[in-house]
Structures are given as C-alpha cells and as structure tokens.
Simulated assay, not measured.
Amino acid sequence: MSICIKEYKNEYKDIISELISDNSFVREDILRCLDRCPECGILVEEGEKVVGVGVYTGVRKKTSMTLYVKPSKRKEGIGTALLKALEEKMQNVGVEEVVCDFKVSEVEKSFTYKNGYKHWFKSNYMIYTGGEITTGNYDIVNYEDKYYGECQKILSESFHKMRLSVGLESTPSIPSEEEKQDYKENAENIFVLRDNSKIIAFVKLDGDEIDLVAVEENHQGKGLGKAIVSYAVNKVLSKGCTKVPLWVVEGNTAKYLYDKLGFVRERTHEFVCKSIK
C-alpha cells in the first residue's frame, strides 16, 4: 500500500497520542514539540491511517528534530521517507544543520548513521522524585532583562568550558537579541543567584524541566550550584509536579552534584547531527 506525506494539523493531536502508545517518553516529547511548532510537523499516512510523525523545533540554522514510526510498520522504508520529507521541509526554510537524539540502541543508531547522521555526544536524562531541598541563605531572585549581559557571559563561559572538558568542539557563544528576547519573555522561569548585587549563578526552567544551569567560573566549588539547582527543584515541586527532570552531558562533572541531590539516571541518549545545506 502506498504512503502519503501530509502537513500536521492540530486536529491530529489525539491520533498522534494514540499512535505512540508504546513509548510515553517519545509521545510526550513529540506532542510537546508539535504544540510549540505545529507548522513544523508532518505525518505519514498509509491508506487512511497515520503510521508515522515527524517534527523539527523551529526555524534556525541549527535545529533539532524527532520522528516516530508505528512499530509494526518499521523496516518498510516509511522511516526513511519520513526523514527525507522532514529534511526537505527544513531545507526549504533555511535550516542548515539538524540534531536528533535517541535512547542508546543499535537499531536507532544504525538507522540514523545510514541516513548520514554522525555521533555528537551522549547525555543522561535524570529525574528527581524527592521532597523540597534546603537551599540555604542565598539571594536568589527572578531574572530581569537588565541582567542579560551578566547571565549570557556566565552561560557562555560555563558551557564552553564544559564542552571542552568532555571532548566536544566549542567556541564561546555571543550575545544575541533573539536570546535576550527569549529570556525576557520567560523571566518567570529564570532565576539568578546574587552576591552583593553581582550575578554569580543562573538557572532556567522549561516547563517542569531544569533546562540550563551555570555558575560563574571563579565561584564554582562553593556550593552555589547546589543552591541554585535546589531552588529550581523547589520551584517545580511548588507547581504540584512530582518529578523534576534534567539532562547532563556524559562526562560533565555536574552529574556528581545531581547524584548527591538525589537525581537518578533514567535513560542515556545518543545525540547525532547532520549538515543539510
């Protein structure tokens, strides 16, 4: 039976949710991406049944994507057709490099490598399921737009150092109006730790997930990472959530902090990338 590639529309949301019945992690990830970027999604239909879905996460030179094919329909070329259609859609809007990730598996590795993707790094998905954590007496406040310069510098230096420490290529990031605006719009989910009005640590939430954590280089090793992460955990728990997830790159020494705080590794993903220019 022939397949048909179609643009995603919001009315397909329930169908997609039912389609991905075997993997709650992937289902939540894809539905979250489709909610944020519905215009970036595509479907594969065989007859009148949806058998696959793919989505990328916005129009940037480097963006991420994810896809899913119904288990009984795998190894029939549907995944490859879906991937090629998604890459073409991204090329048409100016995307130059694609990143995707999958739970470490020889099957997914073989599929992505066969389609031109190359290993980038591995990262651990960790979950905290305990109660509130004591944060200590620190000056932690909500982010304000005027803090962007200080925060961007801390993040740039911290992540540049981390990437080099785990063997990844890296150059320090530079300030951008797009990022500055994003932080401004999400100020209620960003928190900074100050010492005499100087910002020395930063944390950003993405929903119930801890998205970014950084401590100014000269203040590392003083318990500030523990304080700002604990504060973020408590913020998520105060929303009624029962678990707090985060990602940590394999080899990043920050994992020791997360271990001590009670985070537990749930899964390890391989991240791969491909140029589609």
Rank of each mutant, 00 (worst) to 15 (best):
I16H: 04
S17Y: 02
E18W: 00
L19G: 06
L19Q: 02
L19R: 05
L19I: 05
S21R: 07
S21G: 00
D22P: 00
D22F: 10
S24V: 13
S24Y: 04
F25L: 13
V26H: 10
V26R: 04
V26G: 00
E28G: 15
E28Q: 11
E28F: 03
I30Q: 04
I30T: 00
L31T: 06
R32V: 00
C33A: 13
D35E: 14
R36H: 02
C37K: 09
C37G: 02
C37H: 14
E39F: 01
C40I: 00
V44Y: 07
V44I: 15
V44H: 07
E45I: 03
E48N: 15
E48Q: 12
E48V: 05
K49F: 01
K49V: 11
K49Q: 13
V51A: 04
V53W: 08
G54L: 10
G54I: 10
G54V: 11
T57V: 09
G58S: 06
G58V: 03
V59Q: 04
V59S: 02
R60H: 12
R60S: 12
K62W: 05
S64F: 06
T66I: 14
Y68E: 12
V69T: 13
V69I: 15
K70Q: 13
K70G: 00
K70L: 14
K73H: 14
K73I: 01
R74Q: 15
R74V: 11
R74E: 12
K75G: 02
K75S: 14
K75A: 11
E76T: 04
E76A: 11
E76W: 02
G77F: 12
G77A: 11
I78R: 06
I78F: 08
I78W: 07
I78E: 04
T80Y: 03
L82F: 10
L82E: 10
L82P: 11
L82H: 09
L82N: 08
E87S: 03
E87A: 03
E88S: 14
Q91H: 02
N92L: 06
V93M: 04
V93E: 05
E96N: 10
V98I: 15
V98P: 02
C100E: 06
F102G: 07
F102E: 08
K103N: 10
V104T: 15
